[in-house]
Simulated assay, not measured.
Amino acid sequence: MIKNEKIKATEVQLTGLNGEDLGIMSTRDALALAKQHKVDLICMSLMTSPPPCKLMGAGAAKQEKQQEKKKAAKTPDKRKVKEIRLNLQMEDHDRETKQSQAERILTKGDSVKLVIQVHGAKEGTAGKEWAEQLCKSLAEYGSKTTGIQVSGKQVVVQLDPIE
């Protein structure tokens, strides 16, 4: 947060104490106005020219910044991507367990990355077929975000929850 004499711009876009637009003025005039009202001149952003500045008390500026941080902390993070590793030689019961695990993850709102371990080209096609079956059976919980990718020793597909 840049304030008062540390603002190096020659002109600023000034906003008053009550949020009213005071227009573009020289930094010296804006500083004089701030001293007249016994408040600080706070620069909001250096990304535009002239930079937008506000007249506000030092305590109010700190409080506003803290409120913005709290708001940012409250917004939920991106959904997590949970990886489930599978193998073509798994028993049917283990496959069902992994599928129900994927259902649980998707209903919680996280994404699932299914990774099926394969060996060779023949198993690659079998792994792709199994991945397609899994996607169909999990269709009510999530949808594919990526296509089914077959690469060497694994088949990978990611499912995002349906909202």
Rank of each mutant, 00 (worst) to 15 (best):
K65I: 02
A126R: 10
K80I: 08
T97L: 07
L134P: 00
T15L: 12
T125R: 14
Q149H: 07
K80C: 04
E96P: 02
K98F: 07
K113M: 13
L17R: 02
M56H: 01
S111H: 10
G57V: 12
D77S: 14
C135P: 00
V39A: 10
E20K: 02
S45G: 02
L86E: 00
K54G: 09
V81K: 11
Q63A: 12
G16A: 04
Q101L: 09
Q67S: 10
M90F: 15
C135F: 00
T15S: 08
A58E: 11
V115S: 12
G142Y: 06
A9K: 01
L22W: 09
Q67H: 13
W130E: 08
V118G: 03
E5R: 07
H93E: 14
G142A: 03
C43K: 15
A61W: 10
G142L: 04
A126T: 14
K128T: 06
P76W: 04
V12T: 02
M56C: 08
M47F: 07
G19R: 06
I148D: 09
L88M: 06
L55R: 04
P76K: 15
E123M: 03
C43S: 14
K108S: 14
R85N: 11
K6I: 01
A34S: 13
E140Y: 03
D29T: 13
I24W: 07
P52Y: 08
S49E: 12
T97M: 05
G124I: 05
Q66I: 15
M47A: 12
D77N: 11
K65S: 04
I42W: 15
K82I: 15
H37P: 01
V112S: 02
G147W: 06
K54Y: 15
Q149G: 02
G109C: 09
L33H: 02
E20Q: 13
K108G: 12
E83V: 14
E132Y: 00
I84W: 01
L31W: 10
R85K: 12
T15E: 06
V150C: 02
E132P: 00
I148T: 06
D21E: 10
E83F: 02
Q117L: 09
K80L: 11
K108N: 14
L114S: 02
G16R: 04
T48K: 14
L41R: 07
K78L: 10
K70T: 13
E83W: 01
M47Y: 08
E132W: 00
L41G: 03
C43V: 11
L138H: 00
H37I: 00
K70P: 08
